[in-house]
Each structure stands twice: as C-alpha cells, then as structure tokens.
Design a protein around this nucleic acid. Sequence first.
RNA 1: GGCCCGGUAGUUCAGUUGGUUAGAAUGCCAGCCUGUCACGCUGGAGGUCGUGGGUUCGAGCCCCAUCCGGGUCGCCA
Length: 595
Amino acid sequence: MENIKGLTRTGYCAEYDIKDIGKKVVLMGWVNRSRNLGSIIFCDMRDRTGLIQVVFREEKNKSLFNKATNLKSEYVIAVTGIVNEREDKNPNIKTGDIEIEAEELRILSESAVPAIDIAENTATNELMRLKYRYLDLRKPKQQYYLIMRNKVAKCTRDFFSENGFIEVETPVLTRSTPEGARDYLVPSRVNQGKFYALPQSPQLLKQLLMISGLDRYYQIVKCFRDEDLRANRQPEFTQIDLEMSFVDVDDVIAVNEKFIKKLFKETLNVDVNIPFARMTYEEAMNRFGSDKPDLRYGMELTDISELVKDSEFKVFSDACKNNGSVRGINAKGCADFSRKDIDKLTDFVKDYRAKGLAWLKVGVDNEITGSIVKFFDKEQLTSIVDAFNGEENDLILIIADRNETVFDSLGALRTEIAKRMNLADHERWEFLWVTEFPLLEFDEETNRYYAKHHPFTSPMDEDIPLLHTHPEKVRAKAYDIVLNGEEIGGGSIRIHDSVFQEEMLEVLGFTKDKAQESFGFLLNALKYGAPPHGGMAYGLDRLVMSITKTDNIRDVIAFPKIQSGACPLTDAPNIVEKKQLDELGICLKERKDEV
RNA sequence: GGCCCGGUAGUUCAGUUGGUUAGAAUGCCAGCCUGUCACGCUGGAGGUCGUGGGUUCGAGCCCCAUCCGGGUCGCCA
C-alpha cells in the first residue's frame, strides 16, 4: 500500500467536464469498476460526487499499465493524469464526455471482496446492508439521503436563526415522567437505585426556557422512545423542536409555513403556496377517516346511516342504534376487483377491528350487484349508490360499526386502494394543518382520560367550561402538519397558568401529591411569571423521508436499528461486564432460557 | 403478544406432484482480448437448502417446533 505524500487532490471526480480538457488533475477515490481489454484498461473511479473514467494504456506506459491490472472493486486509489476528451462518449454519466489519461497511480488501500454489491444496483437484504452499513453508504442513492438530510438541517438552522430563534441544548440525561411512551432508562452510579431517562422530547425543558425569557427557542435534537419499531419509526429519532412566547395558534402556524416554504425551495427547488389548507380534526375524520388525510386524491367517506338506519339488514341498523354509523367509500372504476380481491380487502379491514366489509358493484346499465343486495329493494339500492355518486364500473365499500372503527378501517382502506390504483400524483406536495384536536381521550382499560397530545396542552378558550362536565368534548389548541398523508409535525399552545395546569392534571387523574412529585418543577416554574407560549416539533426523519420520497426511515439515518431495536453493525445492545453492573448496583434476573 | 410475507452459492433469485449428481445471473479465481463503460470470450472453484424434529422407500418441497429478517395491528402523551 502506498501513501499520498506529495499529492494534493485537485478536485472531486464528477466536478470535471469538457471545459477542463488538457488540465492536469489529481483525483482520489474508490475503484467502482475496472475493465481490462488486454492492452487498455478503463477504470471507473468513484467519490461522493460520482464517477470518472481513468485510462491506462500498455503502449504508453508498460509499468503503469501492469500496476493497473491489479485494480479490483473498492480499492482506494490516487490517480494523476490529464483530462482528455473521449473517443466514444457515454451520455449516461455526468463526466461521460471526458476521461483521465493516467500518468501516475497509487494504490492507497486494497479491499477485500465486498460483502454487498455497491456498483451493481441489486437490492441486498437489509440485515446484510446494515451489518456492512459503511459499504452500503458508498451507494450514491444512500449518500443522497444523507446529503439531503444535511440540507434540511442546514436550512432549519438558517431559518430559525434568521427569525430570532435561539438554539439551546437540553439534557439527554433527564428524568422519567409519567404518561407517554416507555422511557429508555440509564442507571446512576453515584445515586444507586436511581435512573435517568432519555428524553422522549424536550417538551418541559423548552417550556422552562420560555419562562426564562428566551422568547424563541429551537433545537435539532435526538429523542428516544422505547416502543416497537415500524417502517417510519426508530427508537431514537430526531426532532426539529421549537417554542415561541406571546403567541397563539395562528402565530405558530404562520412562522412554520414560512419555514416549510423556504425548506422546499432550498432542498427541492419546489415553490409551495402558503398559507396551507386547514381542516379541523372533526372534518378530517368525517371526510377521510383519518387525522392525516392525503389530499392528493379524493375518495372521501360518505355517511349513509340516515339511509339505512331502519333497514332490515341488522348489521347496518344495529350499528346505527348503538351510536355507530354506516359509511363507505366509492372506489371509482374498481368494479373489476374479483371476489378474491374483495376478500383480501375484508381481511385488511379486520386488522382495524372491522367485523366485515359490505360491497356493491355498479355494472352495465347501472345494474347493482354485491354482498348486500338481498337485504335491500331496488329503490333503496339506487339511493345508496346515488349517495356515493356511483357510476358504471364503480366499487362501493361500506363498513358499519362503532364510529372509531368505521373511521380507522375506512381511512386505512382509502389509503390502501389509492396505493393499489396509484391515485396519488407523486409530484404534488399537499400540505394541510389539522386543528382543534380533542384534548382528551378516554381509556376504557384504565377507566380514565389521557391527554391526546400531552398534559400541558391548552384547551380552546371556549371549551374550558366543558372540562369537568363533558371532558371528551373539549378541543385543544393543538395542530398537526400533514404532508401527502404523513404527519410530519405537530404542536400546541401550552397552559401557562399554574393553577389551571394543576386542574388539568387533576382531570387526568393525578392527585395533588402525585402531580407535585411528577411535574412539581414545572408547576413551580409556572408560578413565577410564565408568558403565554406554544410551539411545534417536526419529525426530522419523516420530513427527510417525504423530501427524498422513500418509505423507509432507515434510509435517512446513517446507522439505523432493525425491527428488534438492535444495531447489526455494532451488535448493540449487548451484555456488559459484571463489574459494570456491580458499580451500578444492578443485579440481573435470571433469564428464562437459562433457568 | 396477534396476523401476513420471506430465509436455497459471496450477492440477487429460480427450483414442477415429494423422485437421478440442487440450477441461473452476478461476483470471485485463471487465461485470452486496444475504445470499453453492466466490456466480451473460454475454463474453474463455490451449497449444513436458517435450525431441530417428524411423515415417507425417498424431503429444498409436506407436517410440527424454533430462530432470524421485513411489513402490519396492539403500542408510539
């Protein structure tokens, strides 16, 4: 192996073009591919900017040529040479008009045969890719994700700095607070038997910063939640977190629309129109069965409860009687779905606790067929189909159940069918604010109310009188920002009155003592002149996913974890030395498989 | 914890009703080749078919259990 003594890189591989012909250059990078034709070798060299072809000719320099015959995939090399125009150009790569006529070659580092394909574009299984993540990240596509993520972070810092926000770091070793996700715990050596918790978000600390008078805070910050992983959920993820003093809902929304506008201009050169559409939670649920509707396509829900509440079809009439409803969607042009297809959709909605899926097809001459025709006369069927604006070749899918189940399953079904029929225009960016979320949710298992957002969210002023009489009807000053059917962020105006905050905790079932024990530091702080304040947090990873159009969160994280929460590269989590446990005063229970 | 999909050569995959010595592409090794660009041509090496058990004359294929990966429901204030 050789060193780079005396060599200074003149530029990146893909930075050169036809204008540089005749220049002497020094390049460093990886061997993407080498093609040996016998007396001439073409070597594609790669760095993070792309590829450039290097030529070695036996007739020109025998010893240099012989050295080049040793080049293999992923060797690291330094090449000195002259930029030449190619005899045969390659329009498929950026530097296809030129090549480097090699004058010197140094092999800086050899490579074992790569465990995964880098130059090939094969879809290697993810476990392998993550185990060799440093190789996987050599792929241009993977580098694109990280480069885009950096652009988002840079633009975020630029925007919030320019708008008077101050970036403040909050602790990673903090305390566990009740409510919310499961905490990651860190044992304290100095205080044995006590634990830090990693933050699920810096929520309370940023409120304290408002009380401190920082006025506007932001932070790009890691958050941790010990819950099961999903395609868009990692146990550690990054938030763009912000908080503002002396604001109400519209103020927070206005600043964030400006931010998003700048972000999309600078990352994708896309002009988004502001202000964004707004919709209340109630409207979103009624029209789309979801609090994060994708507005790139229609297929809205239709409520036919009134039409069928007295029908002889028990499934429909019972649902209406039991405070539920009968609703459906019209899958335009899907009448060619087979029974098997529809059975699969039925299984699909069962995942969302729906007990079944009723369907009607509109055929030639408006002939109506389907699973429920025998329960209705012709006139009734026509009125149902009309309610859906059903036309020839439409498939109408109906669910009768508790409202919650109806919305969950139809909302998911709408998304599923849109995916199957490719209804979404992938070039469109549909932003939406969903507002007026319910403040509380009742949990039947524990028989109490939980904060839907978090316990520090302010109710809407006009709903405060309902807090003790009809808690479920109280709406919150909470808002989510939705992009193409994905929730990319959310926030709320917070309670800034300590007495009212205590009252809220009481509604949530906290005794005075328990509230003081858990949130005493906040309740105390609120007594010392807390300004009205509110804020937002974006899921940075999800935002980058949207911008880069990937549906896998692992793509936008350099070293992500697999579904079990493990890191195949470092083998974390792992066992530790007994000595470490002793110092922490921790002794492990025997594992079942060791008993 | 439930449900669905997957696990066969270094990698990506095929493998018929259960039937001879488990195939292909790519990668790798050797040789040839002066304009390739997924270079080409010739030859070669490379497999506990995730693991364990069962059914059978015979299992990559069927059955049971189990492990691993992905998706999803629950969960994620």
